[in-house]
Nucleic acid binder design. Sequence first.
RNA 1: UGGCGCGUAGCUCAGGGGUUAGAGCACUACCUUGACACGGUAGGGGUCGGUGGUUCGAUUCCACUCGCGCCAACCA
Length: 872
Amino acid sequence: MDKAFDFKTAQQRWYERWETSRLFEAQPDSGKKPWSIVIPPPNITGNLHMGHALVFTLHDVLTRFKRAQGFDALWVPGVDHAGIATQVVVERQLKESEGKSRHDVGREAFLERLWSWKDQNQGAIENQLRRLGASVDWTRKRFTMDPDLNRAVRKVFAAAYKEGRIYKGPRMIQWDPASQTALSDLEVKYVERHGKLWHIRYPLADGSGFVVVATTRPETMLGDTGVAVHPEDERYGHLVGRNVKLPLTDREIPVVADSFVDPTFGTGCVKLTPAHDPNDNAAGRRLGLPSITVIGFDAKMTAEAGPAYAGLDRFECRKKVVHDLEALELMEKIEPYTHQVSVSDRSGAVLEPLVSEQWFMKVDEAAQKALESVRTGRIKFTPERWAGVWEHWLVNIQDWCISRQLWWGHRIPAWTCDACGHINVEEDAPAACGKCGATTLTQDPDTLDTWFSSALWPFSVFGWPDQTDDLKRYYPTSVLITGYDILFFWVARMVMAGLTWMDDVPFRDVYFNALVRDEHGAKMSKSKGNVIDPLETMDEFGTDALRFSLTAMAAPGTDISLSRSRLEASRNFCNKLWNAARFVQMSMDADVTLAVEPELGEAEYWMVGRLRESLGQATRAIEEYRFHEAAEILYHLVWDDFCATYIELAKVTLQQGTRAQKAAILHFLDILLRALHPLVPFVTEEIHAAVMADRLPAGEPELLAARAWPLDDPLLKAQGGDPGLVPRFQEALSAILRLKAENGVDPAKRVPAFCTIKALEPFAEGLKSIARLESVVFPEGDVHGATRAVAVVSGGMVALELAGLKDPAAEKAKLEKEKEKLEKELESSLARLADESFTTKAPEAAVAKMRAGAAEKRSRLDKINELLAVAN
RNA sequence: UGGCGCGUAGCUCAGGGGUUAGAGCACUACCUUGACACGGUAGGGGUCGGUGGUUCGAUUCCACUCGCGCCAACCA
């Protein structure tokens, strides 16, 4: 083995090996218990970013863990067609390369380009998944627009339509003039803009004065059909029912009363534009006001806006309206004003609320079921607090606008009869109108919101609506891991869809992973330039280091601040493991194999105990999605217990060790490799090949990725030895090293040592070699003397013979400091014990612990006092 | 405006009603010893944001408060 782990060559080699060995493919006929998870399908437009790296790492940790535990573990991969995002990208390309719009090339040709672009990109993201080590079943990969998945979409649409869950109708929606499509409420973002508040005079029709309305969008006044005041506002009560003359037009509009008006804001008078504002729209309908559309889908003024304004862009029109009002002296005042503007989450364009014909889905019934499933615990959230957010959103849920004016996506399976206008909604294109029988039908040009197909993902990937074997075996899936930012977009919709169409939840557990931020906790963004690219990171530190960092920081509910230093630490950890393996390998003879029954001494029994305890904890941690805890436990198991303690002790015995003694350390390494594999698959597989491959018992899989989780290894059941011995050895060792350091003695200087703890005699050689001592003896009584440095440890004392090297002042100061600290602690312990309310009310165990602690301190203090008495 | 989360070592973060609060990195001193300098040893460093309460005992639970962040919102 090389001196350091060369991850660059190892990574690709092992993934290929795993894939060709078909280790990641589901085994429906294996008789194993199924365990399944579906990937949150990444966008085909995107590259792997750090958020993906985190989610997919956690997926893989869990999947490899479950596979090792003996489950038929299936992780279904796939990608998402990402309607708007993809269309925008390809449209831009078309513009740049040929200077054409999608309308220039036509729908068919444009879709062809989209598909070929998709075919190119899908491979890229798949290879990035491979680089990450993702143990997905490639034979079951899906794309959200695969024919099967499209069939599921059509089936759901048609069935929901016939049940009345889906309907078409005019409603106010958020229109994105840049992408030329409707958006759902969830795709709208509100950003703060510094605008103005224009106060405009609307003259009363009878010429007796005017009312003043305030607005942030003066151009919409051209579509005003009323002015509203609060019914109890005394200032305006007399105006209700009268008309005002709408400036710049020849219309008269009424003053109406409605309690939605806030009398304390602005002038207390609100202009009503039912065609261009959601509130005004609602108010308009309540009050029976007409709706006049003055801004079109192209964000330009319509003919309704009047000849002076028709054709102007809405923002150009704003300037002209303001100018014209000023000329008429109808502008009361203009105030600077900061307010929230709705923009498209995707294109960034300022949205225009417009009334238009769209398809909607009723979700009240499904939402109710989704609420129940979390309330009753059928679905469990980690962290649990998201249940509150879930509750709030689903209780207030609105019908979902599912149609998009895009070409890329699932086309709505609705055909309008050219003859009678009847809308035929069918799974497959009907040959004739269901109403009049005419055969000329036109399919709805719109496509469905991308999330419509994503919602079906947990069962459409298994072939639904066919009752496939996969569907029966792997649905519901075991767990969903995804970001909380798509709780509503995706998670809620999958749950609703699952409950509606499968009559069962799509998953039992939902784990919301955190956001990955930069090292100062700031969101990564291209404009800030603080993006850490996972691919570059994998090149520099190794995939394992990236995976380990992300896992170790994945504390539920806490965002991850990723830094170079963290990645370095993980890389160092992988290297530590590598070198420990290297040591094992160098100590091995050819005849030492995993089939050899190990011989256990004190150190081995202790190591077995550490493995047993840590693996138990790590297993529970992973099962409960406390990934960070598992990583930390295994980190310390490897570094502190195995490397720092066990290997150091083993060095003494391994030189001339027997086959059985050497088999012990081989087994330990084997167990560690299996435990670490889900977190750091490449380095462990590489070590496994170098050290274990030739030493496996018959019938054991050759690849580590196929081997069992080590918790049930028979070796872990071995009991024996004195479990307290190694920790006491560590304490004695540490005290000896400290004595050397405190007295300024070269660590390499070999001096005689003494230890009063007889039980540590078996470790004499260990002490001698690790602390580099001349000799170690275990005298019956006293160890101190004028030329010796002495330290108190629990249960005894250790001393070094330092003739001529001793620094008495330093040692005395150290003892004084220790004494002072101990006295303080002892005093407070005794005070607690003297307090009757403590001894009577506190649990017995706490009191007993306090007593034992006090006794220990007392005895330590006594010894220190002894030493101080003779120190001069 | 409402809801949620966070404030613990220089930095990034774990933790949790019970003696003396942890990790990684950074820092100081020393060490090239045959797994590893991507290493080792010994250290320094925190009144756990503030105030008050519950309790035998609070960094942990509760209330209030200050600071930061996120989400949801119809104030034109």
